[in-house]
Amino acid sequence: MVGSGLRIFNAYPAFARKGEQFCCWPWEHKPIPNALTFGGWLGGARHWHFGLMWVLVVNGLVYLAFIYLHGEWRDLVPRRGDARDALEMIRFYLFVRPSHPMQGKHNAMQKTTYFLLPILAIVQVLTGLAIWKPVQLAWLTALFGGFVWARYWHFMTMVALIVLSFAHIFMVFAVDPYSIQSMVTGGYREDLSPEARNARPFYHLLPRWRNRAAEGE
């Protein structure tokens, strides 16, 4: 989706309506490097984009249905104190605070990311519809501030999704590599959690000796 979208963007790598300037993009008329694009040419990329969008939508609906039916959405909704907890996580990662904050299934920053991702994906689909059908769905396009702004939000939401996704993947390897095993096989060993290991990015990746001793090793 991203690669074909960038290929489409490159056909007009700017946001300004013809005859106007656009305020909020410093790289107007600077194309994305072709190596990052997919689909070969504008028409091809459009076909890929309009084909894969259904995969994205179906995938998203399955995900939302799953977390709703399994009640797992409860682990993701924002709660009072999240902002404070997120600040504590930052203090911990910056070595200001020595011990890992208490957390539930996810830490506060992580939870906020997982809460934002599906919302951003929904915005991504809606802004996409708004620029695909700016006349037949004119109300939707107007909701995002018109065609130019809807196209801008479609682009910026993609950037946000990529940043959060890469941050997520980075953190998996940097603080909680043990979760890869549980993603594949299920189950999660609480004694290996970042909280139990007091783990910062690249710190305390190994289980604590204390925990091993407790297990009788």
């Binding site: 489409i8 056909a11 007009y12 700017a14 309506r17 013809k18 005859g19 700016p134 006349v135 065609f147």
Partner: peptide, 12 residues
């Protein structure tokens, strides 16, 4: 009205 180009720009 708008003119919507396949390339992604529009013009009034």
């Amino acid at each position: 009205v708008n003119h919507y180009c396949v390339e992604g720009w529009n013009a009034v």
